[in-house]
């Protein structure tokens, strides 16, 4: 709301000419910004309304994802989505949502923008919450009765949350 008011004020030519050095670009409508504002940070500010449960997610997964990612998320033929916890320091690390991803918000973000592979961007928010809940449950991260929404999702703590370090390079003597 505050954002919309600010835009309305700035739309007056005098204000903009004074503030913007070149006067290039046009002022977008708040609704147009909101429609594109799909990247979800760890705080979850941009998460849409809606909710989905593990059980609902299991059903959607079976119909729209299992053919490529396997009935249980680890049989392939495409990327493993489940398993691998405890393998990161081994000779054969398995990098999955459960073993590797530091934030649960990333899962919602990525499924909504890029999956299912053959129809990206086709899922409703409720479906994405449900799939996220299902995949987190399949990885042993949330309980079977979990319902995710914009308040709950950012509070989910991922097992590998502290598994990342800043880039120390140059690091090779």
């Amino acid at each position: 709301m505050a954002c919309g008011i600010a835009i309305a004020l700035l739309a007056s030519g005098a204000t903009r000419a004074q503030a913007a050095p070149r006067g290039l670009g046009s002022v977008p409508h708040a609704a147009d910004i909101a429609a594109l504002d799909i990247a979800i940070g760890p705080r979850g500010d941009e998460l849409p309304p809606g909710a989905g449960s593990v059980a609902e997610g299991a059903a959607i997964y079976a119909g729209r994802c299992a053919a490529c990612h396997g009935a249980n998320g680890h049989e392939g033929p495409d990327m493993k989505l489940v398993g691998g916890q405890g393998t990161l320091a081994s000779a054969a690390p398995v990098l999955t949502i459960g073993s590797y991803w530091p934030y649960a918000t990333t899962l919602f973000d990525y499924i909504r923008r890029a999956m299912p592979f053959t129809a990206p961007g086709s899922l409703e928010a409720d479906d994405v919450y449900a799939l996220t809940a299902f995949l987190l449950h399949a990885n042993g991260i949330v309980a079977a009765d979990t319902v995710l929404d914009r308040a709950r999702l950012p509070t989910v703590r991922m097992p590998n949350r502290d598994g990342f370090v800043p880039d120390p390079r140059p690091d090779v003597p």
Binding site: A39, Y100, Y103, T106, D109, F164
Partner: peptide, 14 residues
């Protein structure tokens, strides 16, 4: 989108 923090997208985590 100008932000205070990185967004930890799939292409910078997984």
């Amino acid at each position: 989108k100008v932000t205070a923090e990185p967004y930890y997208t799939r292409e910078e985590t997984a």
